[in-house]
Design a protein around this nucleic acid. Structure first.
Lengths: 225, 225
DNA sequence: ATTACTAGTAATCGAGTAA
DNA sequence: TTTACTCGATTACTAGTAA
């Protein structure tokens, strides 16, 4: 098993610049190698490795390789982007919360799976939520930060409400976030009278599985305004 | 001479997250190693190499290492940030111009060296301009793009005008840019009746030397709105 | 403590090449 | 053309350790 040496980011970054973010693009391993300052053979191995790790889709043939960055690969790029933005932009733009994981009734998962919401998530936030949300009970010592987030709510990415003929579903506001370095988004609702100490988070992947979490575990959440 | 293997970016990125962007921070090579998934000894070598390449300042002792990212190191991070932002943000935000390099009268250099401008550049754009600007004569086939940039002018970073008692100096608008992958900023002035086919660029480093340029050379400019 | 040297080892790299 | 395999050469990495 070949372990990749140049870390994934640099490779994904270059593939992005070659246009592999939204579309399948045809590239030559030799061109990629030139950008990385490595041999054609090395680039070939890197691509194979990235594919095995699920970060790209790849179809190689005798006259080139067609690649596209997967959702999971895109998440890596976004994670780096958010952290850079937070450090490099004028106004520091993150709120850090801690809380403990708990199981909801599954309503979150239900709402998130509605096409009316789901399609907007994909378009505006950049991923389709894993069916199942993460409920976090915010520690009392972070409650002030939680209040601050509530004030910023309407600066977030707006997910429009909709009606399915039977009932109406309210608008949501979202912020990108990282949960222990995994990409996600916090989801805030309009209702004013609900328990502010609870916060709901969505993600393109199964948090619980990915991070091996169970109810009661303490989680650190970095929210980007 | 040990060539660094993990590319510089990942290391700089981690140092940034450890707080080494604006301040000297005390770290342990073992902690850094843990973040990179390498041995303490490897981290030690990386830091030494980065220092040799001028990307960090470093002072090590028997009870830790004090590091700070240099301007040059920061430029690397900003470059990656701008390219990521351009690809990942909703509205695509770059204008690509091409043109040929020519020598001005040196007035650009003079203006840029005035404290009234210089200090704002450092604060608002993030670097102190190398004394000497780059004058670019935009190709006719890119003149539409140049017009577009002019329309966006007031969306740029504003550098306030000032007076030194003798005369007044007008406000400027700047945009981050990359010149053949080197960080810089285009500088636009308010005057409406001047030759729009000429554009002026500043940078933290000596472009001409860095890229080995001479008058008449063709240059590609990526401007971030 | 900690950093960073030396020396040996393990992993990566690239030339040659087959398909 | 191109990709990607084998294998010998190179180099990055780690363990041990001195300061």
């Amino acid at each position: 098993m070949t372990k990749i040496q140049i870390k994934h980011f640099e490779l994904l970054f270059n593939l992005m610049l070659m246009g592999a973010k939204d579309n399948y693009v045809k590239i030559k391993t030799a061109d990629l190698a030139a950008k990385l300052g490595k041999s054609q053979q090395a680039a070939s191995i890197y691509l194979i490795t990235l594919e095995r790790e699920g970060l790209i889709e790849r179809q190689s043939s005798r006259d080139g390789t067609v690649v596209k960055i997967t959702q999971s690969g895109l998440d890596q790029l976004v994670t780096v982007y958010l952290l850079l933005r937070n450090e490099l932009e004028e106004s520091p733009t993150s709120i850090v919360l801690e809380g403990s994981l708990f199981s909801g009734m599954g309503e979150g998962a239900y709402y998130m799976s509605l096409p009316g919401y789901k399609e907007q998530f994909l378009k505006k936030i950049g991923f389709e939520p894993f069916p199942g949300t993460l409920n976090l009970k915010i520690d009392l010592r972070h409650i002030m930060e939680r209040e601050k987030l509530e004030q910023y709510k309407h600066l977030g990415i707006k997910i429009e409400g909709f009606s399915d003929g039977t009932r109406t579903y309210g608008a949501l506001w979202c912020f990108h976030c990282l949960i222990e370095s995994i990409r996600g988004a916090v989801v805030l609702i309009e209702r004013t009278h609900y328990d502010i100490s609870v916060i709901e988070v969505i993600s393109p992947v199964n948090f619980r599985k990915e991070l091996n979490l169970k109810d009661g575990d303490n989680i650190k959440l970095t929210i980007f305004i």
